[in-house]
Design a protein around this nucleic acid. Structure first.
Lengths: 298, 298
DNA sequence: TGAACCCATGAATTGGATTCATGAATGCCA
DNA sequence: TGGCATTCATGAATCCAATTCATGGGTTCA
């Protein structure tokens, strides 16, 4: 088999799985154009159309689906065997791909991983910043990081950070014009900065808890974003109230730029967790990453 | 997995199977130096030594053997799936690799395959000229050609040529100085041009048959070669007697440049056959090649 | 209807696959 | 034992194809 074919088959599998040249390209670390050229060349050499594509949509043909089902496991097997080969070597190596929020990546992962990576030069870590809850198996990650202890089926959760709290904050200028909310229901009369995720149609409800009472409030407001940084900046600008992680807001609260309300309705909850598939065969490199990230109170 | 790895894994498998960089390179169509560089790079990236080599010998390490056993079937599976994919296309394509003797390649295969290849531009045929009886499975061929009907276990033999006869020939100048042999035993007193194959220690015995009598004569002489062309040329030069295919000698016999002896001891035998593994899943291209080569008396 | 996004493609760039040249080591044979 | 043939290793040079750049066309959504 020509060497170009086997390379381009990998490209094909990535595109077929992602159903997008752009997403597959991002995953493989090449440009969308490179993948387009590769796939076109492969289809010409094989004499079979593997993908149907219009602008903005990609789907495998029948032949493409059959090929994906038949060779996909072989490629996965080769991947697994190469990973297992690492066990025979003196020093751990390999690339660990993680999905994490911006905050978790910067505040939790990087400080701990920097130490690890210095110690093990052949270990590589890729962190994909994504504030959604991604499907780490489907999207080809080794593990994901999220706040709280959401454990999906067949996932292992390892706590990697301390307890967290949410905070409802607003700028002093905002509170000069609006009464401070005393209970969560009051938020419905406020201009609340929303979190809108691309994959969710509805807006994100703010969650509150006091004693045994739990409230979810569907807030509304003039500004929404999919990025917490932008939301925080909007709050600082006096646009409205934001519902963000306490740690993120803390420096601004301490400097008087933001004021906190409804603090008693925001109890601490379990901190960030690393989650990964229980079936995953841990390479030595991955095991080291997990241990490096594990949270201990000492 | 980096794209260079999967390429170099193919190189590794080829070298491990051939136990030779030079032979693997010939098979893959690159230089020995290219393979050396590829394997060195792969071993560095994986951090594992896969092959032990001295000058003149190559053997997989323990890790290399395990890797070969674990990923070899995956690569074979991908190969097979790509071949099967051809079934989905409008026109047969692919590369068929054949091993044949020089004579069979020129006299039988090329005339028939030329027609086929003109008709199916996407079919490729590679003919490896080798006068040994190669292990086509181990050496990565799709089929082999040999005279006679030697069917090994699990092999299918398809006759592709007419009956053959061997011929003992010598130049007129040789017979002026030596009496003509009347029976095979007389050959022991003659200067016989030997066939020496690199893989066989002993010399090749000349086989004769008359009625129910069969004789194998271990001849001796001053000249030996591993190539029938060279043997024929030596006979033409008067060096001694040669034992070659009748068809090869016929033009020279007809022109008086060679004289034939012991003709009644050389009965016809079944002609050239194409042999291939019975388990082999025939691609459309391969099926076309077999049909193109099949011998019919019409 | 316009903006945003995605795929395709030709031309240009560039990096790495490959070759070239040559040295070192091994095995075989006289 | 020495010489020759053969094989693998390696640095430098070459070159080609993988990839990027730039841009156009088409689709979707607000």
């Amino acid at each position: 088999m020509p060497r170009t074919d086997i390379n381009d088959l990998q490209a094909f599998l990535a595109v077929a799985r992602a159903r997008s040249f752009t997403r597959a390209a991002a995953k493989l670390g090449v440009s969308q154009s490179a993948l387009s050229h590769s796939l076109r060349g492969l289809e010409e050499r094989l004499g079979v159309r593997l993908l149907n594509r219009t602008t903005r949509s990609v789907a495998p043909t029948e032949a493409g689906e059959r090929l994906q089902r038949s060779i996909g496991p072989h490629f996965d097997g080769i991947d697994a065997e190469l990973a297992a080969l690492g066990e025979l070597r003196a020093k751990p190596a390999g690339t660990i791909r993680l999905s994490a929020t911006d905050y978790a990546a910067n505040a939790i992962l990087l400080p701990k991983l920097t130490v690890l990576l210095r110690r093990y030069p052949d270990i590589k870590v890729e962190i994909s910043i994504d504030d959604r809850l991604v499907d780490i198996v489907a999207d080809g990650f080794d593990a994901g990081v999220r706040d709280g202890e959401q454990v999906a089926k067949d996932m292992i959760a390892v706590r990697i950070g301390p307890d967290l709290r949410m905070a409802v904050v607003g700028a002093p200028a905002y509170f000069e014009k609006h009464p401070r909310p005393k209970q969560p229901q009051d938020l419905t009369a406020h201009n609340c900065i929303n979190l809108r995720l691309p994959t969710r149609g509805s807006l994100y409800a703010w969650e509150f808890e006091k004693g045994r009472r739990k409230l979810n409030v569907r807030v509304d407001g003039q500004f929404a974003s999919n990025h917490p940084g932008a939301m925080l900046n909007a709050a600082l600008a006096g646009v409205g109230l934001a519902y963000v992680l306490e740690d993120v807001a803390k420096p601004h609260i301490e400097r008087g730029r933001l004021q906190r309300v409804l603090q008693d309705w925001c109890p601490p909850f379990s901190g960030h967790h690393l989650y990964y598939p229980s079936r995953r065969q841990a390479s030595p490199a991955f095991a080291l990453v997990v241990e490096a990230l594990r949270f201990s109170r000492a």
